[in-house]
């Protein structure tokens, strides 16, 4: 019995040796290491010039006829969500405040995001890239906080949405002076569009 056991041991040992010996030498070295040996090396690169890189609000205005001669208009604005499934436009604004349109360029003035989380006025003030076309449409790109963040929920960075000549938009009547209303619609995501309501006066 013991002899048989010992013979078995020898046999197993021989098998192990022969199997090992038959493996190519590179496979014995192990081509992969455990996941936790992988290291993340942080990146120290800094953009020297902000215009050197792509901005998230880059927009090709060459497709539009920009109105750069109309002077100055000051507008109150509010952006609301328009839900696809129901067609309902919500009563509560994502953001509202004032903006200035000067020679075609849109500049956001005092305004406030209502969405909480990471939203603050610096996004529109610094990053918005909107212009007015000769037909009275706003085109360009802005940062857009599309979700309300409740306490305890993770905050989210904004989307970047493009205003084009949306079929639902009602352009600004540029030749009028006082109490000009307009709607600028924007596609956002699969759940809702955005609607910017404007009430403008020539300055």
């Amino acid at each position: 019995m013991i002899k048989a056991f010992l013979y078995c041991l020898c046999f197993i040992s021989l098998i192990s040796t022969s199997v090992t010996a038959s493996l190519p030498s590179d496979q014995t070295k192990g081509t992969l290491v455990k996941e936790d040996s992988i290291r993340i090396y942080e990146v120290d690169l800094v953009l020297e010039n902000a215009t050197d890189a792509f901005s998230k609000t880059d927009f090709d205005f060459s497709l539009y006829d920009i109105n750069d001669t109309h002077g100055q208009m000051r507008c109150g604005f509010g952006i609301y969500r328009a839900i696809y499934e129901t067609g309902v436009i919500e009563d509560w604004a994502l953001v509202n405040g004032d903006l200035l349109i000067q020679d075609g360029l849109v500049k956001f003035l005092n305004h406030r995001w209502r969405t909480r989380g990471l939203s603050n006025s610096s996004y529109l003030t610094k990053e918005a890239n909107l212009k007015l076309t000769k037909e009275g449409y706003m085109v360009g790109k802005i940062p857009y906080f599309h979700l309300f963040v409740d306490e305890g929920e993770p905050p989210m960075l904004p989307l970047y949405v493009s205003f084009k000549e949306h079929k639902n938009s009602k352009p600004i009547a540029i030749n009028s002076s006082i109490g000009v209303s307009a709607e600028m619609w924007v596609e956002v995501d699969g759940w809702a569009d955005g609607v910017m309501y404007l009430l403008c006066n020539k300055v």
Binding site: L32, V33, I38, I40, V43
Partner: peptide, 25 residues
Amino acid sequence: SRVISEWPGLADADLYEERDLYATI
């Protein structure tokens, strides 16, 4: 952005077949 690697090294003993950068991922 990051560089992700389990850097194997470029010394002779660290190279695959003493000639190539070793793949660790």
